[in-house]
């Protein structure tokens, strides 16, 4: 049974002028699957991802996450968001808190863990992403790659069932991309359900169970990485790949 089930969702932004960001997109994601969404900028892939934890409210269609219809206004969206970790392009760490406090906050406030429990879990995760020694510093003292790893650890601290990545390496200096991708690869190997919007074709090819190609708000092509990179069916996909590879 899919853990995320998306049916015909659409999203239009009206300001400053109408843009159909996502049109009639459907997708099922099985537990443990890693789905990579690629496409040119402005193709609606980030908007689609943000619909999955309702950072954007889809205009129509249905989205079932972990058995809950998140487009139902009466659903407990905060409970769902606690199960769906999100990593942003610009990290969005809390600059007024130390690294450790960044990880502790939601554990204590949302998961109601004690400070000791939260700190224990935070330190485990900081070890996992390789920056335990930086737990007491403020985010602005870290490199971009380190910040993004902290952001991943912060999302993981909630022990989520699903992780969403919105272009996690796009804001990084090239030499720091690898360290973030390594953490994501490890997560995928451990069986985390992941939806990743990225421009990293190498990552898609290596880690993805499925690749989606979006353009103008529509999923044009969907398939295994092998199929996608060696034998793309759609003309637009071929064009995109020829530009990028």
């Amino acid at each position: 049974m899919p853990i995320i089930s998306v049916r015909n969702i659409s999203k239009t932004f009206y300001l400053p002028h109408p843009v159909h960001a996502v049109r009639e997109v459907s997708l099922d994601i099985e537990p443990g699957e890693t789905v990579v969404v690629i496409g040119p900028s402005g193709s609606g892939k980030s908007t689609f991802l943000r619909c999955l934890n309702r950072l954007e409210y889809a205009d129509s269609g249905s989205i079932i996450v972990d058995g809950v219809d998140i487009l139902d206004p009466d659903c407990d969206i905060n409970a769902i968001r606690a199960e769906v970790g999100m990593v942003f392009q610009s990290f969005n760490l809390f600059p007024h808190m130390t690294v450790l406090e960044n990880l502790n906050l939601a554990q204590q406030v949302v998961r109601k863990r004690s400070r000791t429990e939260a700190e224990k879990r935070s330190m485990e995760l900081l070890h996992k992403v390789g920056i335990a020694d930086k737990h007491a510093v403020r985010p602005d003292q870290l490199s971009g790659g380190q910040q993004q790893r902290v952001a991943i650890a912060r999302a993981l601290a909630m022990d989520p069932k699903i992780m969403l990545f919105d272009e996690p390496t796009s804001a990084l200096d090239p030499e720091m991309v690898g360290e973030v991708l390594d953490v994501m690869k490890q997560l995928a190997r451990e069986g985390m359900t992941m939806v990743v919007v990225t421009h990293e074709m190498g990552f898609a090819r290596e880690v993805a169970d499925r690749v989606l190609f979006m353009d103008h708000g529509v999923v044009l092509e969907e398939g295994t990485p092998e199929h996608f990179f060696t034998n793309p069916q759609h003309e637009r996909t071929q064009e995109f790949l020829s530009q990028i590879l």
Binding site: R81, M86, F94
Partner: peptide, 23 residues
């Protein structure tokens, strides 16, 4: 305050009031 701060806080499951007060 950058919009991403509210989004990051809400995506962790904090309510609007919690995000406002803590972040």
């Amino acid at each position: 305050v950058h919009r991403g701060q509210m989004e990051a806080a809400r995506s962790l499951g904090l309510t609007y009031a919690q995000a406002m007060r803590r972040v």
